[in-house]
Amino acid sequence: MNLDISFGQYCEGNSILHRMDPRAKIIAAIMYIVAVFLAKNLYAFALLLLSAIFLIAVSGIPLRIVLKSMKPLVIILLFTAVINIFWMEGETLLVSLGFIQIYLEGIINAILIAVRIIILLVGTTIFMTFTTTPIALTDGLEQLLSPLKKIGLPVHEFSMMMTIALRFIPTLTEETQKIMNAQKARGADFSTGSLLQRAKALVPILVPLFVSAFRRADELATAMECRCYTGGDGRTRMNVLHAGAMDYVFCILVIALGAGILVLNQFGGYMLSW
């Protein structure tokens, strides 16, 4: 078993998207999500599809990697598709086997919802994870949320926690792999046996993992204190974020996309039901 973490992975590059201000990318991603949910008919979906292709092209991320990041989604996609095909009722009956009735509308709905989920994922991962380092992302988020400091929310602390958590994901994955290997070398068996046996088989992995996570947390806290970290007050940043022309252009493009979708929705055709 190999742990695969390409879902949510930064992919090095130097495209326009890579160089954008993380704040603009977060805003654009949120608006993009709204736009995706606005789309109701085939025309609107066609536009969405084009926008997703445009995003992938501009980001310069190889299509292979984008597709790979969607692997974990296959089960969800199949599940929602099946539910839609069997449960949705419509006007054009295609198959009728006893209590199973499949309508054309159900199939179209299933396809559109699958497309919607895929585009949602492509849009957000291209804007946020593939082209933005986790550190830049939390930086951007911290600055976007900084007005909330005024009402006493510990925005800096939250974003520091997030940065640290993100920083340690690869470390912990690697560590899990190492511990698993070491236990396998002693004949541990993670893939056979009853559910209870398999759950028990995880103990030899989880215990050392937790022990080392706590040890790392402890060491990190000491290291931060040694460098006089005291929290967000009075702290200046090494990288000050600047919004440039491209950042405005992209945000406007996404707004235009949303408007375009609203217009296209008016042309009717098959309408997505939810």
Binding site: I179, A182, Q183, A185, P204, I205, V207, P208
Partner: peptide, 14 residues
């Protein structure tokens, strides 16, 4: 084939 991995002390758990 018994293998003692590099830094094996992190495998202790019981």
């Amino acid at each position: 084939v018994g293998v003692v991995m590099q830094y094996p002390e992190y495998q202790l758990f019981d």
